[in-house]
Nucleic acid binder design. Sequence first.
DNA 1: CCAATTACGCTACTTGAAGTATCGATACTA
DNA 2: TAGTATCGATACTTCAAGTAGCGTAATTGG
Lengths: 183, 183
Amino acid sequence: MPASTRPPGRPRTGVDAAVFAATLRTVHELGYAHATVDRIAAAAGIAKTTVYRRWPSKGALITACLVDAFGPVPLTGADRSALLANAIRWIAAKIGEPGIGAAFAGVFTDAVNDPALRQVLSTQLQDPYRLVLQDALDEPEHRVLFFIDVVVGTLLHRMGMTGEPMTTTDVDALVDMVLRALG
Amino acid sequence: MPASTRPPGRPRTGVDAAVFAATLRTVHELGYAHATVDRIAAAAGIAKTTVYRRWPSKGALITACLVDAFGPVPLTGADRSALLANAIRWIAAKIGEPGIGAAFAGVFTDAVNDPALRQVLSTQLQDPYRLVLQDALDEPEHRVLFFIDVVVGTLLHRMGMTGEPMTTTDVDALVDMVLRALG
DNA sequence: CCAATTACGCTACTTGAAGTATCGATACTA
DNA sequence: TAGTATCGATACTTCAAGTAGCGTAATTGG
């Protein structure tokens, strides 16, 4: 039998998926700034205190929501170039989905001057993809970090400046540019 | 004689430069989130109300501060490639100066879900550089916007994720990559 | 000198959101 | 049934953006 049986006490209700969906929906409808924890909790049909029992801060909630929304990066492609191209198009499409880009940009900017949140964002969101890509592309850490800066930074800058995701034409240009840098 | 003589009433004191300096200093020391208008005003030696008499919001103050801090882009270089390379190194150095990168990233994230601030940021900060670069590089608007997304987005993403400006080695890689895309 | 005008500093206030504290009720385990 | 942990609800604290009002200072024009 497993070492950990069910612990005593009332079990947690399985509301994580509902909270994540409510988070993206609220951010999409009201924008990051107006997507307060109060409103997200109300949209999910739970109390605000329940949110804070599971995630220590709004930034941590958004980060967890993004981790859940992104899921694993698809590592498909015949060679390194095709693999990286697919990864770039995948993240571009994800950031273009309703709420995700705004949530990403919002938590990112919150993290700029919040070292604790930066740590959460870096370890929980960026590091998994960085490690997988290092392995798949056979590139050193600093090169993969550079590519992530370029791709994600470009996509978020466009999203932040225009409020709209990048067009497929510009994503194509981004892919071409990065692939040439990959060599 | 000029059409506008001095208007009646007490003239404004010339504190703009002091406020800008205090803004960058405060953001550098405390971070964007803790650089409140109260603290900035105190650091500049003026009342908070005076700040709001001149700039309608904190975002507008930060934007004006950045416009002042950046100044005109140096358009030097023998050809288009050298010119763009110099411009990229210039903006990278500026974003690396104390307070500027954090202020930029902060106001940028504030703007993501604040259309009014986005308008201010786009017209007062981005458009002047875009127009000058369109002319100097003889490139269409969408190409210049793409380059700005790539360069500024990459630099801010690095700044946001690590808290440190990009190293000269990585700036070199950024220059190489963009120059190859310029063709 | 004096009125009108405008900016300043100061204090107090409103508003909104993050995060906390408490408590009764509920859903489990042993 | 006792113990434990979660939930919802309400209230609260804290902090920062932005506003209002007032007495005072600086300037122009008569």
